[in-house]
């Protein structure tokens, strides 16, 4: 029993340490890939960013719409339905924008990264590169990691912006909140630090989700089952990591 606990703890610490070293290797290799082989990064921004736009925009729009409806019906009890814009902007910019985008990003782009890298490993493509004296880490992993890191904050910003438009559509055009009050209250309440908090969160989530996806793919057991497990683990661990980090960053910002 004690032995089991000991090995679990030690195993966890070893994995965690290996992940940190892996992250460092990615970071060390990032600058020369970004400046030297920018094409590869562009390709990956396309894969994990541009192709995630549809899901992000549709979700953002409806999340914003729901915020408009819920905010209106609850604030109307206090005769404060004019604050629905402030309510939606606060929720979207600081919490829902970065968090939901990160969860969707893990589901849409993270799984794609993990399974792609896992399959490359399972079909011996990574070993073949090593045989040709090409290190797969800078050539395959770093562009994918950078692509995710670049895409995620932009996706979160698109999510929040579209969400605000959705809230405006529901609150102002459907439920009749005054458009001037909607924006004026929002502008007088929010300041730059709220926007920065959202940006910082989305950057951190982008790094974490991309790192975990690349890591899980690279360490997948090279079988069909192993690749499947790597994809699942990517989503599960990313979601947990994002939510815990969200709590920590919020606690630090307050």
């Amino acid at each position: 029993m004690l032995r089991d606990i000991y090995f679990t703890v030690v195993g966890f610490l070893r994995t965690f340490g290996a992940l940190q070293l892996f992250f460092l290797r990615l970071l060390v290799n990032s600058p020369h890939i970004f400046f030297g082989r920018f094409r590869l990064v562009v390709q990956q921004v396309q894969n994990s960013g541009t192709l995630s736009l549809v899901i992000i925009m549709v979700s953002g729009f409806f999340v914003g719409g729901v915020l408009g409806l819920q905010g209106y019906s609850n604030l109307a009890r206090f005769n404060a339905e004019d604050s629905v814009g402030t309510f939606a902007a606060f929720s979207l910019l600081k919490e829902l924008g970065p968090v939901i985008s990160a969860l969707l990003f893990a589901g849409r782009a993270g799984t794609a990264l993990a399974s792609e890298i896992g399959l490359m490993k399972a079909t011996d493509q990574l070993s073949a590169m090593e045989m040709m004296a090409v290190d797969p880490l800078p050539r395959v992993l770093v562009p994918r990691f950078l692509g995710g890191v670049i895409s995620m904050p932009l996706l979160a910003a698109v999510f929040s912006a579209i969400g605000l438009l959705g809230a405006h559509l529901v609150g102002v055009n459907l439920l009749g909140v005054d458009a001037g009050a909607f924006w004026q209250q929002m502008q007088s309440t929010l300041d730059m630090s709220d926007v920065y908090e959202g940006i910082i969160k989305s950057v951190v989530f982008g790094v974490v989700v991309s790192l975990l996806a690349v890591w899980e793919g690279y360490n997948a057991i090279p079988t069909a089952e192993g690749v499947g497990r790597a994809t699942t683990r990517t989503v599960v661990i990313s979601a947990i990591a994002v939510l815990i980090l969200d709590f920590m960053i919020t606690a630090m910002a307050i």
Binding site: G49, I150, S151, P153, L154, L155, A157, A161, L164, G198
Partner: peptide
């Protein structure tokens, strides 16, 4: 995509 993201950021 990058332009759209930056525009959204600017809007926010």
């Amino acid at each position: 995509f990058v332009l759209l993201g930056l525009a959204a950021l600017f809007f926010l």
